[in-house]
């Protein structure tokens, strides 16, 4: 297997909780607890979980918007976080992000052209003709016309704004695009268009996606691999087909079983194998079955990710 493009190793992120400034030790919120993930060139890896599970914090750490407390992030084998991290300018060429809320992700006082030209100028693309060329190309590739670039964000619909957000993420031609709930704020019909667009762009430019989502049907549709997070830890990770057809961890099973999916509800299509109690492999047990929220100010109980099938890991502890 090729060396991964992005490699997260034992990532920890802790936030100090308010209060107790002096004297006593400050209590810490453990947002991410020893997360390790590899992202290969051209694949879509999705991190799923519910609010507060640490998936967004992980994405922000990759983008350099949140400093990890511990652990390392490597891009093509070189440090991507910590003291040896590259400058913002170099980082910008490697990874970009598409945000959830299309209404908050564009500066209301800049035209689309300005929003796209500014980063290019910053990265030494100053010739007017090249600027126009690149902006035209990127506008076309997200399904907008170059003329629309002269407009302000409020003149666009939510779906169009999300296209502009994608254009901005692609303008510097990064290798990794972090998708933070890219379609959850959109209507069903618009959602389908954006999902199709993201898949087309991935194929066209060989992009690697790190997608953060709570919507499992979108995740199943788009991902190559899936990592399920529960309170700062990955509880299960593997190829999409293994996670959706053969989920092992009780939390994953519960997550899949609770999706209100019309097909499953009405007995159409295939039943997802998420019913029945979860079975841990012999000699192992589940450290946490995900049925109740653990204390987020404590280190979790010791456990490890065990490979139960090629590429399919489940968090277990020895019993």
């Amino acid at each position: 297997m090729n060396a991964p493009l992005l490699s997260i190793d034992d990532l920890h992120v802790r936030f100090p909780l308010s209060g107790s400034w002096f004297g006593r030790q400050r209590r810490m919120l453990h947002a991410v607890n020893g997360l390790s993930l590899d992202l290969a060139k051209g694949e879509c890896l999705s991190i799923v979980g519910e609010s507060g599970c640490g998936k967004s914090t992980t994405a922000l750490s990759v983008m350099g918007l949140q400093e990890p407390t511990q652990g390392s992030i490597l891009f093509r084998g070189k440090p991507f976080s910590g003291p040896q991290a590259p400058s913002r300018m170099e980082r910008a060429m490697a990874a970009q992000m598409v945000f959830q809320d299309p209404y908050a992700s564009l500066n209301p006082r800049q035209t689309v052209w300005q929003s796209l030209a500014q980063p290019l100028r910053l990265h030494n693309v100053t010739a007017r003709s090249e600027l126009s060329d690149r902006i035209e190309t990127v506008m076309r590739s997200v399904g907008l016309t170059p003329e629309q670039a002269a407009r302000y964000p409020h003149e666009f619909s939510g779906g169009q704004r999300q296209r502009i957000g994608i254009a901005r993420a692609l303008i510097l031609q990064p290798e990794i695009v972090v998708l933070d709930e890219p379609v959850s704020a959109l209507d069903v019909s618009i959602r389908a268009q954006i999902i199709n667009l993201l898949l087309d762009l991935q194929e066209e430019f060989g992009l690697s996606y790190l997608m953060i989502s709570h919507d499992l049907s979108v995740v199943e549709h788009m991902s190559d691999r899936v990592a399920v997070m529960f309170f700062g830890q990955i509880v299960e990770t593997g190829p999409w087909s293994a996670i959706f057809s053969d989920p092992v961890h009780p939390y994953t099973r519960r997550l899949i079983a609770t999706i209100p999916d019309p097909g499953a509800v009405l007995g159409l299509g295939r039943e997802v194998a998420a019913e029945g109690p979860a079975q841990a492999p012999a000699g192992w047990s589940f450290a946490d079955d995900g049925s109740s929220a653990p204390d987020v100010t404590q280190e979790p109980k010791p456990s490890e990710l065990v490979e139960i099938a090629p590429g399919h890991f489940v968090r277990l502890s020895r019993s």
Partner: peptide, 9 residues
Amino acid sequence: GYVQAAQTL
């Protein structure tokens, strides 16, 4: 988003 995007750009 747009302030965070500016940082990442």
